[in-house]
């Protein structure tokens, strides 16, 4: 006989969560956890309570828009964007930070949005592919990707473009070799690499503001 291995999941998690609620209320946060919550926990109504208190307030600026949100602490920035904010331009390709499809800008830096929890970004400014163009006017990098056919299926494209913009801004687009090195965190399984590099070089040499 064999069983599924679940070392980090306690045998009875519900029991455990109740214990945690009780302990945390007693030991650390009596003042923070409202009385009714503690009694609800003791009355085994904990799941409903958990649902309420597991929502963490979060302030974000996404594509220039200020948002006041409540999210579960285990929600990744990627899932928040895709599932809660319906900004599906940011793609999920691996959930492990290995493919770059989820690349967004956080305070101007490119990051893999799957690798951080949304709540870690309180007060920060997020730019996704949807926030790159100015109204109907495409960003020069978007224009260049269309012109050089820097994609096929289009799934890695938002991540490639967000990374490409950052690559130019960082000053890492000085040569074809440098671009290939600094774009290597963004996988394109269709293999449009030659065209992506051409698009980045075009933008870099075009001298437009990126």
């Amino acid at each position: 006989m064999a069983t599924n291995h679940e070392p980090d999941v306690p045998a009875n998690h519900n029991e455990n969560r109740r214990t945690f609620l009780k302990q945390s209320s007693l030991l650390t946060a009596l003042a923070l956890v409202p009385g009714p919550v503690v009694s609800a926990a003791e009355a085994k109504l904990d799941e409903r309570v958990a649902e309420a208190i597991e929502q963490i307030p979060l302030s974000l600026k996404v594509n220039g828009k200020k948002l006041k949100l409540k999210v579960e602490p285990r929600t990744t920035l990627l899932d928040l964007l895709r599932e809660n904010l319906h900004l599906t331009g940011t793609k999920k390709g691996c959930d492990y930070g290995q493919c770059g499809a989820c690349t967004v800008h956080v305070d101007g830096q490119r990051v893999n949005s799957c690798l951080s929890f949304a709540v870690m970004h309180d007060g920060q400014e997020i730019t996704t592919i949807e926030g790159l163009a100015e109204g109907d006017k495409l960003h020069p990098m978007q224009e260049a990707f269309v012109k050089h056919d820097g994609f096929q299926c289009g799934y890695c494209t938002p991540g490639q473009i967000m990374s490409a913009v950052a690559c130019v801004r960082e000053g890492h687009a000085g040569s074809e070799t440098e671009i290939r090195e600094y774009m290597s965190g963004n996988i394109c399984r269709c293999g449009a690499y030659s065209n992506i590099v051409a698009a980045i070089q075009d933008v870099k040499s075009g001298g437009q503001k990126v």
Binding site: G89, T128, Q142
Partner: peptide
């Protein structure tokens, strides 16, 4: 250029 290029580069 691709007819769906704009859709693909804007995340639409």
């Amino acid at each position: 250029n691709r007819v769906d290029g704009r859709q693909k580069v804007t995340g639409a």
